[in-house]
């Protein structure tokens, strides 16, 4: 009876978005009188930070500070259509819709600024701090605020834009399965180190060391949150969770968090993560969907590490202490 260590690895890819039914999302953008920009959506922020990312994408395209962007979302009376927040599609689909809308709004913004400065709009650029200036001569400039005021009260123009991103529907070919199931793909590789207690069958995950290729990390802190949160879910799927512990038998289903087990803070391993960026040509500033994928590579990496530690294969999830002990017993027999 001993605690035995092992390590295993797994590598995966993950598709961004669904397109087996057509996959559109829309965005509307308008400037207020004082040069704030409102992004109107019907998309849902699940807590992963969608609103923050959308504000950053809008600001990048308009050439203004993110603080000046307001995201108004999740009301079907005001927001244009969105398929929903799932399938790692939010950043990619809605982000692209916002870029399209922001480009249209930016063009009007620069036209109005050009009239105010009595120059050609093509000669203007944004300084990213809330001003519009003549390329190469920051001295001659007008603020976004002044431009918005002038648009409203002098020129009678709306600084606004409409955006949509549609991934057209792919109909799988029935005989061969030829199809376009997704747009771009993100990638990951995880090395898991585990310790298996051969007396109790319990598995402790000691460390997860992973590399993630995400296209472009639009907000690195939120990428890290997804990575760590997702890896936690991966550990949980690998070792703890199920609503039917003796599947396909329906008995013994847990009904609360006393019975439905998940790792607590003390069960967390050491995380080390590296991010690689290979921008997706069709992604907003190169971004791919990273949300779902982060749970996937830890699961088989842990299963493979268990084999490395004690020489038994558990090919059914979750890998509970009961399964490990039964396998060790069978191995000894």
């Amino acid at each position: 009876m001993a605690k035995q260590r092992g390590r295993g690895m797994a590598s995966v890819n993950y598709p961004t978005g669904m397109n087996l039914g057509g996959d559109p999302s829309q965005a509307l953008i308008h400037a207020t009188t004082t040069g704030s920009f409102v992004v109107t959506l019907s998309s849902v922020d699940l807590g992963q930070g969608l609103k923050t990312i959308m504000a950053q994408i809008c600001a990048e395209t308009l050439g203004i500070p993110t603080d000046n962007v307001i995201v108004d979302t999740a009301d079907t009376d005001t927001g244009p259509h969105c398929m929903g927040t799932f399938a790692s599609r939010g950043t990619h689909r809605i982000g692209n819709a916002i870029i399209m809308a922001a480009k249209e709004a930016r063009a009007v913004l620069l036209e109005v600024a050009a009239e105010e400065l009595e120059v050609n709009a093509a000669d203007l650029e944004t300084d990213g701090k809330g001003n519009i200036q003549i390329k190469g001569s920051p001295g001659k400039s007008i603020s976004v605020l002044e431009t918005a005021l002038a648009a409203h009260f002098k020129h009678g123009r709306t600084i606004s834009g409409r955006g949509i991103f549609l991934q057209p529907r792919s109909y799988p070919e029935p005989e061969t399965g030829r199809m376009t199931p997704a747009t771009c793909y993100a990638h990951a590789c995880t090395v898991a180190e585990v310790e298996v207690d051969t007396e109790t069958g319990e598995v402790a995950v000691l460390s997860l060391k992973s590399a993630y290729e995400v296209g472009r990390a639009l907000n690195p802190r939120m990428v890290e949150q997804q990575i760590v949160g997702g890896a936690w879910m991966g550990i949980s799927h690998a070792l703890y969770e199920t609503t039917e512990p003796y599947y396909p038998d329906r008995a013994h289903g847990p009904v609360d968090f006393n019975e439905y087990l998940m790792p607590g803070p003390g069960d967390l391993p050491k995380f080390e993560n590296v991010v690689i960026e290979r921008p997706a040509p069709d992604g907003p500033y190169g971004a791919k969907g990273v949300g779902e994928m982060t749970a996937n590579s830890p699961i088989p990496a842990i299963a493979n590490a268990i084999y490395d530690a004690v020489g038994v294969r558990i090919d059914s999830l979750p890998i509970t202490p009961e399964k490990v002990l039964r396998a060790l017993k069978a191995q000894a027999a």
Binding site: D45, G47, G49, K51, T52, A55, Q56, I57, A59, E60, P65, T66, V71, G128, R216, A217, L218, N219, P220, R221, M222, Q225, E277, R278, P279, Y285, G286
Partner: peptide, 18 residues
């Protein structure tokens, strides 16, 4: 060679709005 380095508002850490 595939990365555009001239970005200002994206690629920046910001706290989640909620």
């Amino acid at each position: 060679e595939e990365r555009n380095q001239s970005l200002h508002e994206v690629g920046v850490e910001r706290p989640r709005s909620d």
